[in-house]
Amino acid sequence: VPQRAWTVEQLRSEQLPKKDIIKFLQEHGSDSFLAEHKLLGNIKNVAKTANKDHLVTAYNHLFETKRFK
């Protein structure tokens, strides 16, 4: 089981690129989880459509539901 890579403050910070969060989610989330949160596909394309709040919610949801690969 992966550990949380970032704190809530870090997740919301401008310093953390959306692409980093997407990469983490794609590496650790199950396909059904990723599909549900519309996070499947090319990281660049996902970054265009997903806002930061959406990614933070998905990140927290992944750990709450433990839907890891």
Score class of each variant (00 low, 15 high):
Lys18Asn: 10
Asp20Glu: 13
Leu40Cys: 12
Thr7Leu: 04
Thr7His: 04
Gln26Tyr: 06
Phe63Cys: 02
Ile21Ala: 01
Lys23Ser: 11
Val8Gln: 14
Leu40Asn: 12
His61Val: 12
Ser30Asp: 11
Lys52Phe: 06
Asn45Trp: 15
Glu64Cys: 08
Phe68Ala: 02
Asp53Tyr: 07
Gly29Ala: 15
Gln26Ser: 04
Thr49Lys: 11
Gly41Asp: 05
Ala35His: 13
Phe63Asp: 01
Val46His: 05
Glu9Val: 05
Asn51Trp: 06
Asn51Phe: 08
Asp53Pro: 07
Arg67Ser: 15
His37Lys: 06
Glu36Gly: 07
Phe33Pro: 00
Arg12Gln: 14
Leu40Pro: 01
Leu34Trp: 00
Lys44Pro: 10
Lys48Arg: 13
Phe24Thr: 02
Thr57Phe: 13
Gln3Glu: 15
Ala35Cys: 13
Lys52Met: 05
His28Tyr: 12
Leu11Val: 04
Lys48Glu: 15
Gln15Cys: 11
Lys69Asp: 05
Leu34Arg: 03
Leu25Asn: 00
Glu27Trp: 04
Gly41Phe: 03
Asp20Ile: 11
Lys18His: 07
Leu55Arg: 01
Phe33Gln: 00
Ser32Gly: 09
Gly41Ser: 05
Glu64Gly: 04
Pro17Val: 10
Lys48Pro: 05
Leu25Val: 02
Arg67Leu: 09
Lys66Glu: 09
Asp31Ile: 14
His37Asn: 08
Tyr59Pro: 00
Glu64Trp: 07
Pro17Thr: 11
Lys69Tyr: 06
Val8Glu: 15
Asn42Pro: 15
Lys66Ile: 04
Leu16His: 05
Ile22Ser: 00
Lys48Gly: 09
Phe24Glu: 04
Asp31Ser: 12
Glu9Pro: 04
Leu11His: 03
Ile22Leu: 09
Ala5Asp: 15
Ala5His: 15
Val46Gln: 04
Asn60Phe: 11
Thr7Val: 04
Trp6Gly: 03
Trp6Thr: 03
Thr7Lys: 03
Arg12Gly: 07
Val56Lys: 02
His28Ile: 06
Ser32Phe: 07
Ile21Glu: 01
Phe24Lys: 01
Thr49His: 13
Ala47Thr: 12
Ile43Met: 08
Asn45Phe: 15
His37Ala: 05
Ala5Thr: 12
Leu62Lys: 00
Lys23Met: 10
Tyr59Asn: 01
Asn51His: 11
Arg67Gly: 08
Lys44Val: 15
Glu64Thr: 09
Thr49Tyr: 14
